[in-house]
Computed example of a mutant assay.
Amino acid sequence: MTRISLIQREKKRQKLEQKYYLIRQSLKKEIKKVFSQREKWKIKVRLQSLPRNSSAIRLRRRCLLTGRPRSNYQYFGLSGYLLREMIHACLLPGTRISSW
């Protein structure tokens, strides 16, 4: 299990990202429209003044059950070893573990 503080930090980042999503997108569109370097620089300064954790790139996908940050399968939202255990226990219908 992951420490609860890390999971809570990730939830806080998700809330910030949702809060500033439209602002970030509008500023990025403005940068593409403007031709002047000076105007682009001013828009970039406004973009950089937003909180760092509001950027989508800082989010990390975690396992829904354990909070593990590595080897996640996006389709299931589970980590690899937990997914394998659930498939062997026949808890995920329609999936199969390959063995050779």
Score class of each variant (00 low, 15 high):
residue 62 R to W: 07
residue 19 K to T: 06
residue 23 I to C: 06
residue 85 E to P: 02
residue 63 C to Y: 04
residue 95 T to Q: 07
residue 46 R to A: 04
residue 88 H to M: 09
residue 4 I to C: 08
residue 50 L to E: 01
residue 41 W to H: 14
residue 34 V to R: 02
residue 54 S to Y: 00
residue 97 I to F: 04
residue 66 T to R: 05
residue 1 M to H: 09
residue 63 C to S: 09
residue 13 R to H: 08
residue 34 V to E: 12
residue 67 G to F: 04
residue 20 Y to A: 01
residue 26 S to C: 06
residue 45 V to H: 06
residue 21 Y to T: 08
residue 20 Y to V: 01
residue 24 R to S: 01
residue 27 L to M: 03
residue 2 T to D: 10
residue 64 L to E: 13
residue 85 E to V: 07
residue 94 G to E: 06
residue 39 E to A: 07
residue 46 R to G: 00
residue 25 Q to G: 02
residue 28 K to C: 09
residue 40 K to Q: 02
residue 84 R to V: 03
residue 70 R to C: 10
residue 27 L to G: 00
residue 93 P to Q: 14
residue 25 Q to W: 03
residue 84 R to K: 14
residue 25 Q to V: 05
residue 41 W to N: 10
residue 52 R to A: 08
residue 3 R to S: 14
residue 53 N to I: 00
residue 86 M to Y: 14
residue 7 I to N: 04
residue 82 L to Q: 00
residue 85 E to M: 12
residue 86 M to T: 00
residue 93 P to I: 05
residue 81 Y to H: 12
residue 23 I to E: 11
residue 91 L to F: 14
residue 12 K to M: 06
residue 63 C to W: 01
residue 71 S to A: 08
residue 76 F to S: 11
residue 35 F to P: 11
residue 1 M to S: 15
residue 35 F to N: 15
residue 48 Q to P: 01
residue 70 R to G: 07
residue 52 R to K: 13
residue 2 T to S: 13
residue 5 S to D: 12
residue 58 R to N: 15
residue 70 R to N: 15
residue 51 P to F: 01
residue 78 L to Y: 05
residue 27 L to S: 01
residue 90 C to A: 14
residue 49 S to T: 06
residue 14 Q to E: 13
residue 29 K to I: 10
residue 19 K to R: 12
residue 6 L to E: 11
residue 65 L to S: 13
residue 92 L to K: 05
residue 26 S to W: 04
residue 69 P to Q: 09
residue 47 L to R: 02
residue 84 R to D: 07
residue 74 Q to Y: 13
residue 30 E to K: 14
residue 12 K to V: 03
residue 21 Y to S: 14
residue 54 S to C: 05
residue 38 R to V: 11
residue 69 P to Y: 03
residue 27 L to E: 00
residue 44 K to P: 01
residue 28 K to H: 08
residue 35 F to S: 15
residue 51 P to A: 00
residue 69 P to E: 04
residue 81 Y to R: 08
residue 44 K to F: 02
residue 73 Y to F: 11
residue 38 R to F: 10
residue 47 L to S: 01
residue 83 L to A: 04
residue 31 I to V: 10
residue 51 P to S: 02
residue 12 K to P: 00
residue 84 R to P: 01
residue 23 I to A: 15
residue 49 S to Y: 02
residue 89 A to N: 08
residue 69 P to H: 02
residue 96 R to L: 11
